[in-house]
């Protein structure tokens, strides 16, 4: 099993903040907007470095989407930042008409996604955002797995000409990917090669999947782990090749079943390579208050939950 080292726990939202600053330095067209969540989105460094290119919108997300569309039409590269629920569900129609429909170059920085938002509870914990964003034509959906990859995904989003939904989170999690590896939209990353089963994951479940694979190896099960950080477009070639090799797969995500990565991969495999699948996700539930690790455990999204799902599938 390939070894990955946690170089120190960091939150993926800070990876976004670092990537935004780098993207801003590389391209003067990059501007950042937030709806009263500059600190939570880790936009402080960008705002300090480029005060004229940081645009505070107040608690008015719908307007923020429209204003960002105007800035993008005029040639800027706007990143709009808020909590995942408030930059998706709350503004779905605005994203649809102002951003996706005209392929307007707006980047949606979506923080505190999933149940690991934690103690604030279900009003703030979206488990439906990937579904909403995948449903929009023209929308690219990226769910990087750690600090380093989120920074790189932010830089890649700035370079891409078109709408991007960039999902990341609040809690500190292991940081283990190569900080210098450029992010490729449309690419799935094979983190560990295996022969008995494939675990497809994105975001916070990627590290948990690596831990699960390690535990499974001790029990004689060889698991391939693939980081599907580009949820849309999907790297169909890599996904199909792995399913052909292992014949069984689990899809693990911090999102509900409807419209998530699990259904995206099901669609590809049903058409190209019918494969027995298992799913580790929030099913069809709302979140609740708790610490991020308590919630990951309770919803079965941690390494233990993933390993159990694999064993059920391969048995």
């Amino acid at each position: 099993m390939k070894k990955y080292t946690d170089t120190g726990k960091k939150d993926t939202r800070s990876g976004f903040g670092a990537g935004l600053l780098q993207a801003g330095k590389a391209d003067s067209r990059v501007v950042a907007l937030t709806a009263d969540l500059k600190g939570s989105l880790k936009m402080d460094a960008f705002a300090d470095e480029f005060p004229n290119r940081f645009i505070q919108c107040g608690i008015a997300e719908s307007n923020m989407v429209g204003a960002a569309a105007g800035l993008a039409i005029a040639g800027k590269i706007p990143f709009i930042g808020s909590f995942a629920e408030f930059v998706t569900g709350r503004v779905y129609d605005q994203l649809r008409q102002e951003v996706a429909y005209g392929k307007t170059n707006v980047k949606i920085a979506s923080s505190h996604a999933g149940i690991t938002l934690g103690e604030d509870g279900a009003t703030h914990q979206t488990m439906e955002d990937i579904a909403l964003m995948r449903a929009l034509p023209e929308m690219v959906v990226l769910v990087p797995c750690d600090y380093n990859q989120t920074a790189q995904a932010t830089i890649a989003a700035a370079k891409y000409n078109g709408p991007v939904y960039l999902r990341f989170g609040r809690p500190s999690v292991p940081n283990f990917t190569d900080p210098d590896q450029p992010f490729e939209i449309g690419k799935a990353y094979v983190l560990n090669e295996g022969k008995d089963v494939t675990i497809f994951a994105c975001g916070h479940t990627v590290w948990e999947s690596l831990l699960a694979a390690e535990a499974l190896e001790a029990e004689g099960i060889s698991a391939e782990v693939i980081n599907v950080a580009s949820v849309k477009p999907l790297d169909e070639e890599t996904i199909v090749a792995s399913a052909k090799k292992t014949g069984k797969a689990i899809v693990a995500e911090e999102h509900n079943m409807a419209g998530g990565l699990g259904e995206a991969i099901s669609g590809v495999l049903a058409a190209e390579c019918p494969t027995r699948l298992g799913f580790v996700n929030g099913a069809d539930r709302f979140g609740q208050s708790g610490t991020p690790s308590e919630l990951m455990k309770a919803y079965g999204l941690d390494a233990v939950g993933i390993a159990a799902a694999v064993k059920k599938l391969v048995r």
């Binding site: 039409i73 005029a74 008409q97």
Partner: peptide, 17 residues
Amino acid sequence: GQGVSVAAGLALAKKLD
């Protein structure tokens, strides 16, 4: 209900530029 926001973004861009 969305045009004022878009127009404001365009106007802000003109100001910045």
